[in-house]
């Protein structure tokens, strides 16, 4: 009996370990995949990982940048999401993956300025090698991935259905996804598409 139990424990541990392994079938994560953790520097030069965020029930990973008008249109909404949901365990983690040579406005120095000016309450991280964007499959800014506490991707897409005018937005996709996860429910709308600035990949 004891032996069976240990065997069961071993199996379940192995299974748990397996399920926490990042899955990526190429072309980035799909809903249901487990995202990798990463270590990227914030605007103060300190490395930040998802695992560093205390009492996390999940994460709102936002690929964004400094210059893109769509990213700018969502700036305040991203801050508001963090202010509302970070105390409930869902922190925003913003990542800029744009290449500074292609888009000089998206340099690390300009990230620092923007974070200061807008008083970003969340980590704003610099994906200089673009490896994190590639692993996630992020293509545009803003491009959002809602992860649960095991880093399983539960939602990919837009923040809401009206980039131009927050007052006119009817569907708040990210908020709905986070609310569902907080209530232990399945996310209803798992994927949406939005127009955004293409991520500025390094010129090879």
């Amino acid at each position: 009996m004891k032996k069976t139990f240990s065997l069961f424990l071993l199996f379940s541990l192995a299974f748990t370990a397996m399920s926490f392994q990042p899955t990526n079938t190429g072309g980035g994560y799909k809903v249901g995949d487990t995202a990798m953790d990463f270590s990227l520097i914030n605007v103060k030069g300190k490395p930040v990982s998802l695992a560093d965020i205390k009492n996390a029930k999940g994460y709102i990973v936002v690929f964004t940048c400094n210059h893109c008008p769509y990213a700018k249109a969502y700036e305040q909404r991203i801050i508001d999401l963090h202010k509302k949901y970070a105390p409930m365990g869902f922190s925003v983690v913003a990542i800029n993956s744009n290449d500074k040579d292609v888009q000089p406005q998206d340099s690390y120095d300009n990230m620092k300025k923007l974070a200061k000016k807008k008083k970003y309450p969340f980590p704003y991280l610099y994906d200089e090698t673009q490896e994190v964007a590639k692993a996630f499959g992020a293509t545009r800014t803003p491009h959002i991935y809602v992860l649960d506490k095991n880093r399983v991707v539960r939602y990919i897409g837009a923040i809401d259905d009206n980039s131009e005018d927050p007052a006119m937005a009817k569907e708040h996709y990210v908020a709905n996804a986070v609310n569902a996860l907080l209530n232990g429910k399945d996310v209803a709308t798992k994927e949406t598409k939005a127009i955004g600035c293409g991520i500025k990949w390094k010129k090879s």
């Binding site: 293509t139 545009r140 491009h143 897409g157 837009a158 259905d161 009206n162 980039s163 131009e164 005018d165 006119m168 569907e171 949406t192 598409k193 939005a194 127009i195 955004g196 600035c197 293409g198 991520i199």
Partner: peptide, 20 residues
Amino acid sequence: EPNPNHWVNAVSPEWSGALP
């Protein structure tokens, strides 16, 4: 169209919405 989610897939399911 205010909501690209309604028409981006009509252009191509391959399109993520990034420009150009």
